[in-house]
């Protein structure tokens, strides 16, 4: 009986019904966690029954969104929901054991939502590297396509087939006719992603700046 782990998507409004369904099916509540992302906070709820561990993720919960509590179904979730509120600022509605922001003794509000400059730089670098890698792969494909067209034009069918094979071998997962326009769009998307990181989507920038100012002041 090997451990079977699944990651599944979940919509916010489906959460209470899911918790009830899992309870009825004999699953136990394992944990709830939050991840700070550029699009908001990701919430993940885990349930387990025997060897089956199911992780349900609600993506990008924005500030101010009311998240329904699951403590009515699983009382043990009160620890995690209070933690989500104190460390991530997630607004939980209906927590049966709500500590009102005093679960952890913190010197700073919602500390897990602050993105440090070093962390931000590392993220940007990773996104840029990914975009550059995709672009390089695209250029390689264009070069190979040119060889292919030339070969076809000169009637060298054998050479064309060889070039085609070589191209497929080099990028087996890539769509065969990736147009330059598509690649430009992808590069633009990557740039947009970098810009999104810079946008104060969660007020994180201000918080980070405030934290830095406070440090400098100290």
């Amino acid at each position: 009986m090997a451990l079977d782990i699944d990651f599944l998507p979940l919509e916010l409004e489906e959460l209470p019904a899911l918790a009830k369904r899992k309870k009825k099916a004999g699953f136990r509540f394992v944990q709830m966690l939050c991840v700070t992302t550029q699009d908001g906070i990701d919430l993940q709820y885990s349930f387990m029954k025997e060897a089956s561990l199911e992780n349900y993720t609600i993506r990008g919960v924005r500030p101010g969104t009311k998240v329904p509590s699951v403590t009515e179904t699983y009382i043990s979730a009160f620890v995690f929901e209070n933690e989500a509120h104190d460390l991530f600022g997630v607004e939980i509605e209906g927590n049966l054991l709500d500590f009102g922001g005093n679960f952890y003794k913190l010197s700073e509000r919602e500390p897990m939502t602050i993105i440090s400059p070093a962390q931000k730089a590392a993220r940007e670098k990773a996104v840029q590297e990914k975009a550059a890698g995709e672009e390089a792969a695209g250029e390689e494909a264009v070069g190979e396509e040119a060889v292919l067209e030339k070969a076809v034009a000169s009637g060298e069918q054998q050479k064309a087939a060889e070039a085609n094979d070589a191209k497929e071998e080099a990028s087996p997962q890539e769509a065969p006719g990736l147009e330059k326009a598509d690649r430009t769009a992808e590069a633009n998307d990557a740039k947009e992603e970098v810009r999104l990181q810079e946008a104060p989507s969660l007020g994180l920038e201000e918080q980070a700046a405030e934290a830095n100012d406070a440090k400098e002041g100290a």
């Binding site: 966690l33 991840v35 700070t36 992780n55 043990s76 620890v79 995690f80 962390q119 590392a122 990773a126």
Partner: peptide
């Protein structure tokens, strides 16, 4: 329970440890 999420760098985006006592406080 442990959870990890990568972000393409040497640093993880998120690491989570849900320890047994967290789960046993309600009990």
């Amino acid at each position: 329970y442990y959870y990890a999420r990568g972000n393409g760098t040497k640093n993880l985006e998120r690491m989570r440890m849900r320890t047994p006592t967290s789960q046993n406080l309600a009990g």
